[in-house]
Structure formats: C-alpha cells, structure tokens
C-alpha cells in the first residue's frame, strides 16, 4: 500500500506514538484513581514520563494523549506552560539555579558565571558529556540560605565560588575532554 498516496491531501503528519511502559502506566493509573476526571492528570502523567525518560518527547506526548484521551494539542499547551516539563532532552542531572531576588542580592550572578565557566554551559544548555543541564528557576524558597540551587532532588545552599569549583571538579575534567 502506498503510504504516500494515502497521505496526499494532508500536510505532513510525522510524529509517531510509542507505548507507555508498564511502570509508567501503573503510576499514571494510580494518579487517575485520585482525581474525579482522568483528564486532570495530564501534568502528572507528563511528570511521570519525564521521571522515567528524562524528558518528554513527541512520541511520549502522543502516548500520554492517547492514554488519557486528551487531545495532544491541549497536552502540549499544558506541557509548555510549566517550567519543569522538558520538551527537549536534558542532561542526567538538571541544575535548577535560583536567580531570584534574595539569591541575586547575595551575589548569585557570580556563582552562575562560575558554573558557566566551569561546565561550559549557559542557561538551557547541556554539558557535552550529557551530565548537566543548567536552567534558571524562580525563587526556590530557601532565601535565608541564598544563594541556592537544586541539582536533581538535592538542595545546595550558601553557594560560593570555591564550593562550585569543588562540586563540579570531576565534571570539569569531562568538559575539557569533550571540548577538544
């Protein structure tokens, strides 16, 4: 059967779906059981898939859309609204760097510069070894320990340049390797 001809009238529809994994499904099902309407768990499903896959690909978007019976366009509307849903691949660890007011007053700009220098990445970028992605985050709610950042699930507080230096020492080696 000629696929091309079948699609003749419609403008490209490319992205395919994938199967959700059993683990993803069971977590999504658990969430569904908590809400009166399964369409309410769109964001939860995105987070679950992201936890398993690292990010949310187009294929995953379609899979969730099919599973929850939410139009994929609507799901995209939700996914792109929230700061913590990644629609592009990210590194193994995401650095959520707080650059809001208290951290700023406490000199987070210099810390950010230090991270950039050391890892060779700016906001939105991933280290060449795929280890870290740097993302700014609105106030992390730990202002009395500013400047702060979160790597994965772990808070790093009272940041200073030396601390950054030692924290990413190993990564720095990787980086110079990757940069050559």
């Amino acid at each position: 059967m000629s696929e091309n001809k079948l699609m003749k009238n419609s403008v490209i529809t490319t992205s395919l779906s994938r199967e959700l994994t059993a683990a993803e499904i069971s977590e999504i099902e658990h969430e569904i059981s908590l809400y009166p309407d399964k369409r309410a768990v769109g964001l939860e499903a995105l987070k679950i898939v992201q936890r398993h896959q690292g990010w949310v690909s187009d294929e995953s978007m379609r899979a969730i859309s099919n599973y929850l019976d939410i139009p994929v366009a609507d799901l995209e509307g939700v996914a792109t609204f929230f700061n913590l849903i990644y629609r592009r691949p990210v590194g193994k660890k995401v650095i959520l760097f707080c650059d809001s007011v208290s951290c700023w007053v406490m000199g987070c700009d210099r810390i950010k510069q230090k991270i950039t220098d050391q890892l060779g990445i700016d906001y939105g970028e991933t280290t060449s070894d795929g280890e870290y992605t740097l993302i700014p985050v609105p106030c992390l709610g730990d202002c009395d320990k500013a400047p702060v950042m979160m790597i994965g699930e772990e808070m790093h507080r009272h940041l200073d340049e030396e601390g950054i230096e030692s924290l990413f020492r190993n990564a720095a080696v990787n980086k110079s390797g990757g940069d050559s």
């Binding site: 139009p71 994929v72 366009a73 609507d74 995209e76 509307g77 792109t80 609204f81």
Partner: peptide, 9 residues
C-alpha cells in the same frame, strides 16, 4: 475542534 491550542506562556 481538538487540534488547535494555546501553548507556551
């Protein structure tokens, strides 16, 4: 309709 949406913010 189901295939048009508001995205990003």
């Amino acid at each position: 309709g189901k295939d048009l949406s508001a995205q990003a913010s």
